[in-house]
C-alpha cells in the first residue's frame, strides 16, 4: 500500500466531511426559506444565521474538488465528466443560491424577495441532492470504460444509489439545519426548529444510514460495522439531547453521526475511489488514480499548513458570531432611491 495516495484519500474524505458538516446546515437553512419560514422577518432570521459563514462553508466543496484534481486526476476526470448533466444542475443551483442570498435584501420589493427565496430554496435542494448523488455514485460505481469514460449516454449514471445518495444528503441537511436553527435562533423559530428535529430526525437520517449500511454489507469490513454503530449512537444521542433542550450538544450529536457515517462510507470503499460497474479491472483505485508522489508530497506540505490555519480562522468566525439571531432584532428593510 502506498502511503501518500492513502493519506490523500483521507484528506479528501476529510474535505467532504467538513463540507457536509458545515454547508450541510446552510444548505438546509436555504431549503427552509420556503415551507418552514412563515414571513419575511423569519426568512431574514434564517439568512442571518448563515450570513457570515455560508460562503466560507462552500469553499470546502471547491477545495474537495480541487484537491481531487490535484491528488487524483483520474478520479476527478472520470467522476466529473461521467456526471456531466447532474453537475451542470448543481453548478446552476449553487449560482442561484449564492446570488439569491446576497441579492435578496438589496431591493425592497415582495416580488423580488419571493423570487430569490425560491432560488435559494430550490438551489439549496438541487445542490444538496446533486452532491449527494455524486458521492453516492463515487462509492457505488459508474459505467466506465478502460479509459475512465462513462459509456451508455447522458443518463447512464442514473440508478438507485444516485437517488439514495441524494436523499441522504438532503435529509441530513434538513435535520442538521433544524438543529442549527434551534441552536442559533430565538423565540418561535427556535421552538419550531426543535420540534422539527424531534419529529423528523429519524426519517431524515435514515437514507444516509441506509447508504452506509449498504456499503458495509457490500464490502464487509469489520471496522465499518463499529463506525456505523457509532453513527447510530450519535443519531440517537442527537435526538435525546434535543428532547432535553440541549441544543448545542444535540447539534454535536449530529456531527458525530455525520463523521462516523462518512468514515464508514469512505472506509468501506477504500481503496477503490470510483468503481466501474462494467468491469472491475476498470475501477479507479487510490493507486491507479493518484498523482505522482512528488505532487502529493508538495500538496501534503500545503495541506499541513493550510488546513490547521483554515480551522483556526473559520473557527474564529463562528466564535465571533456565536450569539443567537432573533426576530425582534431584525431591522426594517429600506429602499434604495436615486439621488
Amino acid at each position: 500500500m502506498e502511503t501518500l495516495p492513502t493519506v490523500w484519500f483521507i484528506v479528501i474524505a476529510f474535505f467532504w466531511t467538513g463540507y457536509l458538516f458545515l454547508e450541510g446546515f446552510d444548505l438546509g437553512v436555504g431549503m427552509m426559506m420556503r415551507g418552514f419560514a412563515r414571513n419575511n422577518t423569519e426568512r431574514r432570521v434564517l439568512l442571518n444565521t448563515i450570513g457570515p459563514v455560508w460562503d466560507g462553508n462552500e469553499v470546502w466543496l471547491i477545495t474537495a474538488g480541487a484537491a481531487t484534481f490535484a491528488a487524483f486526476p483520474q478520479w476527478y476526470a472520470a467522476l466529473f465528466s461521467g456526471l456531466y448533466l447532474p453537475l451542470v444542475l448543481v453548478l446552476l443551483a449553487l449560482i442561484f443560491r449564492a446570488v439569491g442570498i446576497e441579492y435578496r435584501g438589496k431591493v425592497d420589493s415582495d416580488r423580488w424577495r419571493s423570487g430569490w427565496d425560491w432560488a435559494i430554496a430550490l438551489g439549496s435542494l438541487v445542490a444538496a441532492f446533486g452532491v449527494g448523488a455524486m458521492l453516492g455514485l463515487t462509492t457505488t460505481g459508474l459505467p466506465l470504460d478502460a479509459n475512465g469514460d462513462r459509456v451508455g449516454g447522458a443518463f447512464a449514471w442514473f440508478n438507485g444509489y444516485a437517488v439514495l445518495g441524494g436523499l441522504a444528503v438532503v435529509g441530513f441537511c434538513l435535520v442538521h439545519a433544524a438543529a442549527f436553527l434551534a441552536l442559533k435562533t430565538d423565540g418561535d423559530v427556535r421552538l419550531r426548529a426543535k420540534a422539527l428535529v424531534l419529529r423528523w430526525l429519524p426519517v431524515g437520517l435514515l437514507p444516509m444510514a441506509a447508504w452506509a449500511a449498504a456499503l458495509v454489507l457490500r464490502n464487509g469490513k469489520t471496522v465499518t460495522v463499529v463506525t456505523l454503530l457509532v453513527a447510530a449512537v450519535g443519531a440517537v444521542a442527537a435526538w435525546l439531547l434535543a428532547k432535553a433542550g440541549r441544543d448545542g450538544l444535540s447539534f454535536a450529536g449530529l456531527g458525530i453521526f455525520l463523521v462516523a457515517g462518512t468514515v464508514t462510507i469512505f472506509t468501506a470503499v477504500f481503496p477503490t475511489v470510483l468503481p466501474s460497474t462494467l468491469d472491475e479491472a476498470f475501477s479507479l483505485t487510490v493507486e491507479s488514480a493518484s498523482s505522482s508522489d512528488y505532487t502529493l508530497g508538495v500538496m501534503s506540505v500545503v495541506a499541513l499548513f493550510g488546513i490547521p490555519a483554515v480551522l483556526v480562522y473559520q473557527g474564529y468566525t463562528y466564535w465571533v458570531f456565536r450569539k443567537r439571531v432573533s426576530s425582534s432584532a431584525i431591522p426594517a428593510a429600506h429602499a434604495v432611491v436615486a439621488q
Partner: peptide, 22 residues
C-alpha cells in the same frame, strides 16, 4: 495535466479562497 495543473488550483482553494471568503 492533472499531476501539475491541479496543484495550483488546490493551493488556490486552500491558501487563498478560504481566506477570501471567511
Amino acid at each position: 495535466v492533472g499531476d501539475v495543473f491541479g496543484a495550483p488550483l488546490a493551493m488556490e482553494a486552500l491558501l487563498a479562497f478560504f481566506v477570501e471568503s471567511i
